[in-house]
Design a protein around this nucleic acid. Sequence first.
DNA 1: GGAACTCGCCAC
DNA 2: AAACGTGGCGAGTTCC
Length: 487
Amino acid sequence: MFSFMIALNPETKSAYKLLHDGALALARCESHGMRVDVKYIKKQQKVLTEKIESLEAEFSKTNFYKEWKKSEKGKLNIYSNKQLGEFIYKELGHKVEKRTTKGNASTDIEALQNLGIKDLEPYLKIGKFRTLKKTFLKGLETEVINGVVYPFFHLHIPVTYRGSSSSPNFQNMPKRDPEQMNIIRGAIFPSKGHQILELDYAQLEVRIAAAYHQDPTMLTYINDKSTDMHRDMAQQIFKINKYNPKDKTHSYARSATKNGFVFPAFYGDYHVGFAKTLASFKWMGLPAHGTWKDTDGAAFKNKTMGHHLIKHGIDHLGLPTYENGKKVSQPTGFTKHLQEIEKHFWGTRFPVYDKWKEDWYQQYLKDGYFYNKTGFTFQGVMNKKDCINYPVQSSAFHVLLWALIAGIKAMLSDRWKTRFIGQIHDSIILDVHPKELNQIVKIMRCIMENDVRKHFPWINVPLEIDGEICDVDCAWSTKREFAIDKL
DNA sequence: GGAACTCGCCAC
DNA sequence: AAACGTGGCGAGTTCC
């Protein structure tokens, strides 16, 4: 056995206490659970089954299906990725554009869409309904006890010291796709006479990262509300001279930039990834195949962002090419454009952040371990991206966990009727008594924005929360913005 | 018949 | 030179 001489972190005791109190707080959430409508679940399962069967019927009429069936000699399972991949790439001879992490030909939605096979359209629609039915609705149905499900919350699973949830997983209910969101969250209800409230930190990881690297430009973006990092980056990427928030294309550009460039860049992605993601957004109006100048495809329309870029001389994707894992051609077009912006992003816009990443990693290479801001040890084999991400992800979650613990303390001492349902990494979900709503939002806001900073004085940036509220006795799908500033 | 693996897809 | 961090979970496949 090896024995390690690791210096004792003076914060270790408080780190232990956070996990201890956190486990008790989450146990309270687990014992409260959330109400689900079992009749609704059964009804939706039926609706989804019919949708799936009708799409399967439509697909089975296509030539693609008939050929595929023939080639499988009666053993066709349309949900076998192995069969699908072999038929498309070996039998039909399509070029493999995307591979899985293990290096096999990918059959995910993106890969299939890029093949441009019209017969696959009904097939592609089936996937999301199957996930809704087999994962989410069935997950709730399996776990329900007398109309209530009790998700588990764990603190000992992620290597980053984040939390996780299971049976059912409370932390991955559909949210972004309105159709999926409505179907699943439509099954989840507050206690009788209550309403569901969600309080989430705005840009928590970005702010916690700033507490580590102290980049002055990032601090300005966080402190000065007249500035907007995503807007600035969107203007640069999409060559927008004057940003107009009322222009739909501009606001799409901002959100695409946030999700397709800025966040992936913080996680360690680079220009090839940015280019693929950004070009795939539908609002760009770019054709899935050929050059962007190719206007035969119905996908290309005037007045799209794609058209705007072409006018500025960015007229093709320009991914670098590889042979046997070696780069044999440099990026051009959109990818080269993003490569230049990436260089400016780290080298000129956030040089202090960039230097922190390198220094932090070098320190780990020297020591073999590091501590995060909340007093936890990280050791073992880590690459540079792990080293940069783990301390931020963990401490961001610990801020939330501390706020949850403090909230439950207040609930007990002030005898609230309101209860806590759970935690989703940077948000807290409550089952609120309507008469307590305003007061509780005020108390929680004070805990989440102010008290937590007194407990963790290394947070030298403001913290802000947003709120979402559902109607009384109504499902989680009825959530809408809750203007906590106006209280 | 179950364990382990891969893939795809949902969340942050 | 190469390249996206953390989970849970269902389905299909392979191996024992």
